[in-house]
C-alpha cells in the first residue's frame, strides 16, 4: 500500500501522535517514518500542534532512587555501593554465623546476646540492599536499619511480613518512625523470608499485603 499520499498518512499521523495507533500498527508506522521525511514532517506538525496540551501536566518530582536505578542500569554507577553500614552489618552477620557454628559444638560457650542480631537483608526489585532487619532477643523485637533512603507517599506506611515456605504471609507489624521496631509476638521458626509492602495508613486490612511488595529477603536465622 502506498502510504505517501496525504489521504493515507495524515490520518495515521494524527492517530499516531494522539496515541491511539498501537502495537504492530504503530511499529510499522514508525519504521516507515524513519525512512520517509514526508511522514516525519507530518508527525512533527501534529506533535507541535498537540504538545501545548502538556502545559496542563503537573510536574512531579521523582523519587531519589529512580535516578540511582537509572545510573545502575546504564552502568554509570556500581551496582553495589560500599555503604559503611552495609559492610558493618554484613560483618556482624558473618560473625554471628561463625559464633552460631561454634555454639553448636560447644554449648557451654553460648554467649549472651547483647546487640540486636541481623536476621535478614531486604533488597528492592533491582537487588539493591535497602534495609537490614535485626532481632533483639532480650526485648523480643525486630529493628530496622535503612541502607538506602525510602521515599514513602503521603498517607502510606510500610508493613513488615514473615513469609512461610509455602508463601503464606503473616504480618509482623508496621514500620513507623525514624527507628522502626516491631514486637515479636510469635517466633520466626516457620518463616523463610521477610518482606515489606506499602500499605495505606493503618496497614493492610487483610491477612496479606494489599499494596505492592517492595523489599524482600531470605531469613538467615530463624
Amino acid at each position: 500500500m502506498n502510504y505517501l499520499i496525504p489521504e493515507r498518512y495524515q490520518p495515521l499521523a494524527a492517530r499516531y501522535v494522539s496515541g491511539v495507533l498501537r502495537g504492530a500498527a504503530r511499529s510499522r508506522f514508525e519504521k516507515l517514518a524513519d525512512v520517509h521525511p514526508t511522514l516525519q514532517r507530518e508527525i512533527i506538525a501534529c506533535e507541535t500542534l498537540l504538545a501545548p496540551l502538556d502545559a496542563a501536566t503537573v510536574p512531579v518530582k521523582p523519587r531519589r532512587r529512580t535516578w540511582r536505578h537509572i545510573e545502575i542500569r546504564l552502568g554509570l554507577r556500581p551496582r553495589h555501593r560500599s555503604h559503611p553500614i552495609f559492610w558493618f552489618l554484613s560483618g556482624m552477620l558473618a560473625a554471628f554465623l561463625i559464633s552460631a557454628a561454634v555454639v553448636n559444638f560447644s554449648p557451654q560457650l553460648m554467649p549472651q546476646p547483647e546487640l540486636p542480631t541481623p536476621v535478614a537483608v531486604l533488597n528492592d526489585s533491582n537487588g539493591v540492599a535497602t534495609m537490614v532487619i535485626s532481632r533483639d532477643v532480650a526485648r523480643r523485637t525486630l529493628a530496622v536499619t535503612l541502607l538506602q533512603p525510602v521515599d514513602l507517599p503521603a498517607g502510606k506506611v510500610l508493613e513488615l511480613w514473615a513469609l512461610r515456605r509455602d508463601g503464606t504471609p503473616r504480618s509482623l507489624g508496621l514500620l513507623e518512625g525514624k527507628k522502626p521496631r516491631v514486637n515479636l509476638v510469635a517466633p520466626l521458626s516457620d518463616a523463610a523470608q521477610l518482606a515489606v509492602s506499602i500499605e495505606l495508613n493503618g496497614g493492610s486490612p487483610e491477612d496479606k499485603p494489599t499494596g505492592p511488595v517492595v523489599y524482600t529477603g531470605a531469613l538467615i536465622i530463624s
Binding site: D54, V58, P59, V60, P62, T66, H69, I70, R73, P212
Partner: peptide, 23 residues
C-alpha cells in the same frame, strides 16, 4: 524528569509503575 513523570502518572495513574517507566 518531573514533566515526564507527570505525563506518565497521568496515563498509568500508579506511582510505582510510573517511576519504573521513567527509568
Amino acid at each position: 524528569a518531573p514533566q515526564l513523570l507527570g505525563i506518565l502518572l497521568r496515563h498509568v495513574r500508579q506511582r510505582a509503575l510510573a517511576e519504573e517507566l521513567l527509568q
